Simulated assay, not measured.
Amino acid sequence: MTTRPPTLDEVALRAGVSVGTVSRVINNRRHVSQKARQAVESAVAELGYVPNVAARSLASQRRGAVVLAISSDDPALFANLFFAEVITGVNAVIEETDLELLLILAASERGRARLARVLQSRGADGVMLLALRENDPLAKVAEAGNVPVVHGGRPLDRAPRWYVDADNRGGAREAVEYLISTGRRAIGTVTGPLDMHAGVSRYLGFREAVALAGLDDHRVVHADFTEPGGAAAMARLLDEHPDLDAVFVASDAMAAGALHILRERGRAVPEDVAVVGFNDILTARHTRPALTTIRQPIVALGSEMTRMLVRVLGGEEPTPLILPTELVIRESA
Rank of each mutant, 00 (worst) to 15 (best):
T283E: 11
E96L: 14
L238A: 08
R4E: 12
A43G: 14
D167K: 00
R122A: 13
R207W: 02
V273P: 10
V40L: 12
A223Y: 03
G302T: 05
S57W: 00
R63E: 09
H151C: 15
D136Q: 14
G123N: 04
A172S: 15
P324W: 01
V312D: 10
Y203W: 13
S23P: 08
L212C: 03
I87V: 15
V275R: 03
L8N: 04
R56V: 08
P5I: 06
P51F: 05
A79I: 03
A79M: 09
I94L: 15
G230F: 05
Q38L: 10
E85M: 08
Q120M: 04
E264D: 14
S60T: 09
G205H: 08
P320S: 01
D280F: 01
G188W: 11
T88Q: 14
P297K: 01
A258T: 01
D217E: 11
G48Q: 06
R236C: 05
M308N: 09
F225W: 12
L13D: 15
R24S: 15
S108R: 07
A142N: 07
A256D: 11
P137T: 14
G126L: 08
A209F: 00
R56P: 07
D98C: 01
G315F: 12
E143T: 09
S18P: 07
V93Q: 13
L215P: 11
G111P: 08
A106I: 09
V200Y: 09
F78W: 11
I26D: 04
M254C: 00
E264Y: 08
L282E: 10
G126S: 12
P160N: 08
L99P: 13
N52G: 00
R112T: 01
S181H: 13
L138E: 02
V22N: 02
G64I: 05
A166K: 03
N91L: 06
T306Y: 12
I70F: 05
L215R: 04
D9C: 05
S71G: 11
R263H: 14
R4S: 10
E96W: 06
T319A: 14
T226I: 04
A166Y: 02
S201K: 00
G314A: 07
A268R: 15
L101K: 03
N80Q: 11
A55E: 13
A113D: 10
L81A: 08
L259R: 06
L204H: 13
I281E: 06
E304F: 08
F206G: 05
N27L: 06
M128W: 03
T97D: 07
L237K: 13
E227H: 05
I281P: 00
L105C: 09
D216R: 14
V269R: 05
D167F: 04
G152W: 04
A211D: 14
R37S: 13
G257V: 04
L156Q: 10
N168E: 01
P5F: 01
A107N: 14
E271T: 15
G89F: 06
L309Q: 03
T292P: 08
Y163F: 13
